[in-house]
Design a protein around this nucleic acid. Sequence first.
RNA 1: GGCGCGGUACCCAAGUGGUAAGGGAGAGGUCUGCAAAACCUUUAUGCGCCGGUUCGAUCCCGGCCCGCGCCUCCA
Length: 492
Amino acid sequence: MTLRLFNTLTGQVEPLSPAEGGVLRMYACGPTVYDYGHIGNFRTFLEVDVLRRFLRLIGVPVRHVMNITDVDDKIIRNATAAGMAIGAYTAKYEQAFFEDLEALKVERPEVLPHATEHIGKMVELVQKLEAAGAAYKTEDGSSYFRLSAFPGYGKLSKKDLSGMEDGARVDVDEYEKDSARDFAVWKSAKPGEMAWETAIGRGRPGWHLECSAMSMEYLGESFDLHAGGEDLMFPHHENEIAQSETATHKPFARHWMHVRFLLVEGKKMSKSEGNFFTLRDLLLKGYKASAIRLALISVPYRHQLNFTFDGLTEATSAINRLRTFYERLKSTNFAPGENPALQEAAKKAHAEYMEALANDLNTAEARAPIFDLVRAGNTAIDQGQLLAGDRDAILRVLADFDAVFDVIRDDDAEPTRRALAWAEEAGRLEEVAPEVRASLALTDEAIEALVAERTQAKKQRNFARADAIRNDLAAKGVILEDSKDGVRWKRK
RNA sequence: GGCGCGGUACCCAAGUGGUAAGGGAGAGGUCUGCAAAACCUUUAUGCGCCGGUUCGAUCCCGGCCCGCGCCUCCA
């Protein structure tokens, strides 16, 4: 099976496969670690995660590189404001970033290079560009890429800059540039700023340079796929292409994937709108990491996603449905054998699921056959028609579903617990939803004990006591379900 | 202004030139000590509006209305 993925460069859905060596080499723009990540950031990383997981599912090995940008203007500004050393500041937010990715079950890329550890490589690139006459130095020691040196400029974002007037408005800072659109590949350091002493002077790399340098370092001068948020298409990716292809005379990335921005409650997320949320904000409100993950990936990456609290609640219900079914399959004893109708249903669901994802990662479409199979399975169990061989077949389908979606396996307690500990440390405990605290205060053992006590009470037909226990647990976010095979409980 | 995306049931959201997936929510029912879960039935003669092409359009073309994104080192 081959993944057909929209390619921004060509505007077409095209097969994506490794150009050489059997390993798919991909680069995804990573975070600038200057603050806690928000859900918009995570949508992009989550969609790239869906991509790499699906590739693995269809047997395509991936070498995935994601940069950590640990030097830039915002970092310098924020670290200074916080009175922290740059390194300590970025380390803090980098660690937070990885904790958040783990909470959302985003897999780690194979290579995670830091911008500050590749200054030498970037300096080389600048020298190459300068030698080729594609970059020029200004009086203050900065170096700019000359756009006119790259005729293909605009091919990714479909911009035609040829008709644009230069210099209509030029920042004072940039008066030395030959053309207003020329961009910095090297910035000379102002006094007191973070800077490196290098062969091309004292300064720091331009924003776009790190991605060119590090992608080529770990993937080669040409590679298979480059991904990122839609805002990066221009100018960031366009500039990467310009400087990379000018330096190497080779095509940079063959395939480009851009993830659309999300809206929050119908509006662009912004702090001033009051609809700006970090992952931690949502965990403290009591939403589960799995629900956040599912809500963020259920709308295909090329569509605008309207992220809402209703949507999170809905995702929570959908996950409960899947988990309840999964547990039912696992905990029920089935007679040996196979039911041809169910075997067929499992096969069909799997085929449709895979095909939907192969079709430009259509996650919304991919969900449907899985839920169809859940219904068919539940119905068969109710009617005593599901056999052990069917259970195994369905579990295999669910495993492939979770290989990409990863929401059935319940690892939700830990991220919430960690967010709570973080809130305590950060003095934000008052933001924590009461039921979150109540639920986490109850250990599994305590719940089991109460469940056992209730079962005893029921045996003695002491329903008042049994119901009291159930209600008490419910108030603490624990749901009980009686079944023929015993009592199941779960945290809401 | 330039480039682009979208308007499908109460909400979210797929989709196809031949008659509307899935999830959530609601209503009724089965089961249950009661719940929960599960299952069954039910909720778009209809897919923004108006034309056109076609045997036939939600899906193709044109126009219009509405919403949104990018064009600013915001993923």
